Simulated scan of single mutants.
Amino acid sequence: MELKTLQYFVRIAREESITRAANALHITQPTLSRQIKDLEKELNVKLFNRRNHNIQLTDEGVLLKNRAEALIEMSNKIQDEFKVIDKNIEGNVYIGCGETKGMEVIANIFNDIQDDYPNIHFHIYSGNADDIASRLDKGLLDFGILIQPVNLNKYKSLYLSTSDHWGIIAKKDDVLAQKSDVIKEDLVDKPLICSRQVLDTAIDKNDFTEWFGDLFNHLNIVGTFNLAYNAGWMVKAGLGYAITLDSIIDTSKESELTFIPLEPRLISKHNLVWRKDHTFSKAAQLFLDKAIDVCQ
């Protein structure tokens, strides 16, 4: 199985047409069809369901597409690193992060590095903790910014100087919006929309579940989310109250939503993490050195 064949396969999957894929790849349609037939024979599976006007992936095809995209991305990353390996410090740094104020620290480091090393480029992947951990484990990211609570056992890490405060997002005309803060008893009978990450009871030290204590198992959780932006729409629709971090969902004067902090205050710190066995490019190592200086 060659990487080029996987690239052809991914292009067909995206175009949903061998004809369009062949035109985009500047090869003949019979040649492309033969490549895919050989790939199906090699794997002993059917990758596409062929219809009159387009083709669709089978379940096996979806699995291969996910694996192939990761391999292609890793191949591109390796090529980028070796293009600059014998040059001055330049290249790409790949960082994954959630919705957090911790990005402010990282952006300032980016800016400092760019002043002296204009040929270093930074690439941000946004996602939740599971997304970022998966890409770190596959070597697709150099670093991740994770928000507590999270399991750090697999990684080396630095604490960033930033932190987020937990609270609820409610409509401004809601009864809870009149309070300066909310306690757990205020929420036990309310419809709640929560981050899937904080509901993970397998995390060794989960400050979120500990904050609710014995009431946690009695919460009325009507919905979950992985990134908070869409949770704001759920609140606007009247589904419930979103429990999330401050400064993520728009609660400005023009918004119909407001943020009310939890009491006692619940604060989540931020960690810059990287895989223990990860081999850094010169650019990524420079970023790490700068981050260590800032965080000490």
Rank of each mutant, 00 (worst) to 15 (best):
K37N: 15
N52H: 04
D38M: 02
E42T: 15
L71C: 01
Y94E: 15
D80W: 04
E42I: 12
R67P: 03
S17F: 04
T100H: 00
A13E: 02
N44Y: 05
I95S: 00
A22Q: 07
N76F: 05
S17R: 04
G61N: 03
N44F: 09
I95T: 00
A24Q: 15
N88Y: 08
Q79F: 06
N66A: 14
I27G: 11
I95G: 00
D59P: 00
Y94H: 14
E90A: 06
N54F: 10
Q56G: 06
E99S: 15
N76V: 03
T19R: 10
I18Y: 10
F48Q: 03
K101E: 08
G96H: 05
Q35E: 07
E69M: 08
E99F: 10
V93M: 11
G61C: 06
E73P: 06
K65G: 06
E90I: 04
I27Y: 09
L64K: 02
T100M: 04
I18A: 11
N88K: 11
A22F: 03
I78R: 07
G98L: 09
V84R: 10
T19L: 01
D80P: 05
A13N: 01
G102Q: 09
E73K: 14
E81D: 12
C97T: 15
K77A: 03
Q35I: 03
T31M: 05
E73V: 14
E15V: 02
K65A: 10
P30H: 14
N49Q: 10
E69P: 00
N49K: 08
N92W: 04
T28W: 08
S33G: 05
A24N: 13
L43S: 12
N54L: 11
E81C: 03
R51G: 12
N76H: 12
N52E: 06
R20H: 04
I95A: 00
D59M: 01
E73N: 14
N92A: 13
L63G: 01
N66F: 11
L43P: 12
H26D: 14
I89A: 03
E16T: 09
E60Y: 08
T31Y: 14
N66S: 13
D80V: 05
S75D: 15
R67H: 11
L43D: 11
D86A: 07
N54E: 12
R50W: 07
L25C: 10
E15R: 03
G61F: 05
K101S: 11
L39W: 08
L43Y: 13
K87Q: 13
L57W: 04
L32G: 02
E99Q: 15
I18D: 03
T28G: 12
N44C: 04
G98M: 12
E99D: 12
I55L: 10
H26Q: 08
I72M: 13
Q35V: 02
I36T: 13
M74A: 05
I27N: 07
